[in-house]
């Protein structure tokens, strides 16, 4: 249980994003975007970043298999469309070649002389923001477990899958704690499935990042998400520390009341699997 397996084309790892698309995700955040839209933007940027890590001059190497499950109303759907809709987890090269569209966006970059200049960038979009209905979290975790049980069987020596779950509300189809526990019991010889939870907020309250216990959490819902979260493996503790976030052996992969910066950090830290080979 070391989370040290080499990640290579013959031994890839998997990232599965579980995204709450319930009605409350329409609420606006401090940056003027809805929670759903901002999460979609960060998720698309994270997918692009994963692809960039795997891309070399000759092409994109399949170090990762990636999937997105969106849940709302009473259903769980594949969050990716077109050629990516046939399976939940797809090789990263297939994701690279099948965005829904590529938008031209502008970002401000350092001009090398102390100022900022606009730079035109390509922004691929795979995942659209949606928000409506309830929060069938139990169904979503069950679907994730079905997909990852098969994946772990097929990749017994790989770095285990990481599930990044983003939600802003309580489950409307039952208590998800036991299901989350069962999901975390799946795994490979290198470790159990990692389940990290991000609670997205637009309340403006202080965020709680990677807590070591549930004693300081504000309510039973936050405590539930804490208990549903895996401990951060040492290399991810280190990534968190590099971002100035205190993390120890007891820290869980859980952020409560996360706003813009925390959402970005959560996706970045959660997708830093061990070194690629």
């Amino acid at each position: 249980m070391s989370y040290t397996a080499e990640i290579s084309r013959t031994s890839p790892t998997a990232f599965l994003f579980l995204v709450d698309q319930s009605g409350s995700m329409q609420d606006l955040m401090g940056n003027g975007k809805s929670k759903a839209q901002f999460v979609a933007d960060v998720l698309n940027r994270t997918l692009a970043s994963l692809i960039t890590r795997c891309t070399k001059s000759e092409g994109t190497r399949d170090y990762f298999e990636v999937g997105v499950l969106g849940y709302s109303g009473s259903s769980v759907e594949n969050g990716l469309s077109g050629a990516l809709n046939a399976a939940v987890l797809n090789p990263i090269s297939l994701i690279e070649s099948n965005p829904l569209r590529i938008e031209d966006r502008t970002k401000r970059v350092d001009d090398g002389a102390g100022g900022l200049v606009n730079q035109s960038i390509k922004f691929p979009v795979w995942f659209e923001a949606l928000a409506g209905g309830g929060t069938p979290m139990c169904s979503a975790i069950t679907s994730a477990a079905e997909v990852l049980a098969a994946w772990c069987d097929a990749h017994p020596d790989s770095y285990p899958p990481t599930v990044l779950h983003v939600t802003d509300g309580e489950s409307t189809d039952g208590d998800p704690e036991n299901l989350a526990s069962q999901l975390q019991q799946l795994g490979t010889r290198d470790g159990c499935v990692l389940l990290f939870n991000l609670h997205v907020s637009s309340s403006g309250g202080d965020a709680i990042r990677f807590p070591t216990s549930d004693s300081g959490l504000p309510d039973s819902y936050a405590s539930l998400l804490f208990r549903m979260s895996s401990a951060l493996p040492p290399h991810l503790q280190k990534v968190a520390e590099e971002k100035g976030i205190k993390a120890t052996m007891e820290s869980r992969g859980f952020i409560y009341n996360g706003e813009v910066a925390e959402i970005v950090d959560f996706f970045d830290i959660g997708t830093r699997a061990a070194q690629l080979r």
């Binding site: 960039t52 891309t55 001059s57 994109t60």
Partner: peptide, 17 residues
């Protein structure tokens, strides 16, 4: 040895990295 303008979006992003 590399012409960024001819690269796909992903290769251009990797080149920029």
């Amino acid at each position: 040895l590399h012409n960024r303008a001819d690269l796909s979006w992903s290769k251009a992003a990797a080149y920029d990295r």
